[in-house]
Amino acid sequence: MGEILVVAEHRQGQLNPATLETIAAAVNLKGGSDRKIAVAVLAENPDDFVGQVGKAGVDEIVKVPVGVASFQSDTYEAAVLALAEARKPSVIMLPHTVDTWGYAPAVAVRGGFGCATDVFEAKYDGDELVAVRAAYAEKLHMEVDFPGKDTVVLTVRTNVFKPSEDDASPSVSDFAAPPAEARTTHMKFIEPEQTGDVDITQAEYMLSIGRGVGEEDNVEEFKELADTLGFTLGCSRPIADNGWLPKSRQVGQSGKTVAKCKVYVALGISGSVQHMAGMKHVPNIIAVNKDAEASIFTIARYGIVGDMFEIAEELREQM
């Protein structure tokens, strides 16, 4: 019975908390079996992170010194492939992050491993590993297995598994990664710009209005509400077309993608394909629309079938 090998992730000296979630996913997958869980720390100085990944359920921490301070795909690939070769894990689990997008599929192809990305459930059905992930914009879930694969790479969706609060005292071992030719070179990190101007692509909390707003003076009411909530105001195309809000506030095709948005309150927006192109990825969409059949509800997490003005007025009174 091969082990579950978790690969830790870090950046700028900080452990990515998704690592601890991935460990929780491994513990969950292990269930009552006597499968072992090992956590590999690939870093210039693995000791920097060893203390942080010794969570309940972890049997072993493998220190893998690599010659690079930050993520480098060739180096990471070579190290994980060598670990797989030496340890024959059944499962290699990584957080589903920008870094792993950049090398997990390569590890799978080079190793001939099975691979499923953005997995939010993993379990054993008898001896068979089964992973569950979403498809078609979360409208469906798909259950996959990996026939004939002795090793499977899984990248684990973030914010799903709850990290354990309990520490353990796993054994610590060393592993020498083979040298790899680095074909990309890290130059620098660029911090997000803090501009004075409103940049909806950087906004985390947005309130957006659509055609339902009706007239220009009403737009002011929603600006006022957005101010009260501390949200950034956006809009769908017709509002910008009317000149009621600047073009820079328009979300969607021919407008902007609200890439950093965490909470998006859509008021009176029916959800045209064009608008949704700019915001459908937001994890928490709250839609208010008179029409219960409006497309926006198909991508919303919370919905209110109702009048945007009444809801807005009540929000203003209650904040």
Binding site: S70, T97, T185, M187, F189, I190, E191, P192, Q202, K260
Partner: peptide, 9 residues
């Protein structure tokens, strides 16, 4: 990268 950070490489 996550959180608006950008890497130049």
């Amino acid at each position: 990268l996550e959180g608006g950070l950008v890497e130049q490489l």
